[in-house]
C-alpha cells in the first residue's frame, strides 16, 4: 500500500470538497483594498495569537512582577522588543482596520437583510476586540494601566441596576489589585480568544453562505473575467 493510499484511507477528508472550498471564485471588485478590509483584522488576529503565545513565555501576572516581566521582555530577552511591538501595533491596526471595514459595510449598505445577522456578529467582534485592547493595556500594570482599569471598571459600574455587580466581578473585589490582574489575564488569554474565534467562525461562514455580490466600477465594463480564484494557480 502506497503512502497516498494509506493517508487517504486513514484521513478520509474529501479532497475535492477541500479544493472547492479554497477555490471559490472571488468577484473582481474585491481586488480594491477597501473591499478587502475584513481580512486585515483576521490576519492581525492570527498575528496576535502567535505573538501573544510567545509573550506568555515570559509574562508574569503578578502585581509585583508584571511590569518587571514586561521590562524583561522589552529590554533583556532576545528580540522581545520586536515580539512585543508587533503584538502592540497589530492590536492598533486591528482596531483601525475594523473601523474602516465597518464604514465600508455601512456606506455600501451591506448590513441590510439578509446580511443583518452577520452585521450583528460584526458588532460583537468589534466589541470583543475593544475588550482585548482594554485588558491587554491593563496587563502591563503600570500607572496608565491602573488608571485605565479604574476608569474602565467605573464605566461598567455605571450600568443601571447590575453595574455594581459587573464592576465587582471585573475587579474581583471592590478595589483594583491582584484579583483584577488575574481576571484580566484570564479574559485576555483564555475567554476572549475562545469567544472571538467562535464569532469569527460564524462571521466567515455567513459570508461564504451568502456569497459576495458582484459590483462593477467605471472601466470594468469591458472586463471579461469577472472573478478570480481565492487561491491562485492550482
Amino acid at each position: 500500500m502506497g503512502f497516498s493510499t494509506w493517508f487517504k484511507e486513514s484521513f478520509p477528508v474529501d479532497q475535492e470538497a477541500l479544493i472547492k472550498l479554497t477555490a471559490e471564485p472571488i468577484p473582481n471588485h474585491l481586488k480594491r483594498w477597501w473591499w478587502a478590509l475584513g481580512g486585515t483584522p483576521l490576519y492581525m488576529f492570527v498575528v496576535q495569537i502567535i505573538t501573544g503565545i510567545m509573550l506568555i513565555f515570559y509574562y508574569v501576572p503578578d502585581t509585583d512582577k508584571a511590569y518587571d516581566s514586561i521590562a524583561y521582555i522589552t529590554y533583556t530577552a532576545d528580540y522581545g522588543w520586536l515580539i512585543r511591538s508587533i503584538h502592540r501595533w497589530s492590536s492598533n491596526i486591528m482596531i483601525a482596520s475594523l473601523l474602516l471595514h465597518m464604514m465600508r459595510v455601512f456606506f455600501t449598505r451591506s448590513y441590510k437583510p439578509p446580511r443583518d445577522i452577520n452585521w450583528m456578529f460584526g458588532v460583537v467582534l468589534f466589541l470583543l476586540t475593544l475588550m482585548f485592547g482594554f485588558t491587554g493595556y491593563s496587563l502591563v500594570y503600570e500607572q496608565m494601566s491602573y488608571w485605565a482599569m479604574q476608569v474602565g471598571t467605573g464605566i461598567a459600574g455605571a450600568t443601571p441596576f447590575i453595574g455594581e455587580w459587573i464592576a465587582d466581578f471585573m475587579r474581583g473585589g471592590s478595589d483594583i489589585g491582584q484579583n483584577t490582574l488575574t481576571r484580566f489575564y484570564l479574559f485576555h488569554v483564555v475567554l476572549l480568544p475562545i469567544l472571538i474565534a467562535m464569532a469569527v467562525g460564524v462571521h466567515v461562514y455567513l459570508i461564504r453562505a451568502h456569497g459576495v455580490t458582484e459590483l462593477k466600477f467605471k472601466g470594468d465594463e469591458n472586463v471579461e473575467k469577472k472573478t478570480f480564484p481565492l487561491w491562485p494557480e492550482k
Binding site: I50, M54, F57, D78, Y79, L82, I83
Partner: peptide, 12 residues
Amino acid sequence: ALGLRFITPSKR
C-alpha cells in the same frame, strides 16, 4: 528563527 531565539532561555 527570531521567535525561536525569543523563547529559548538566554545564557545570561
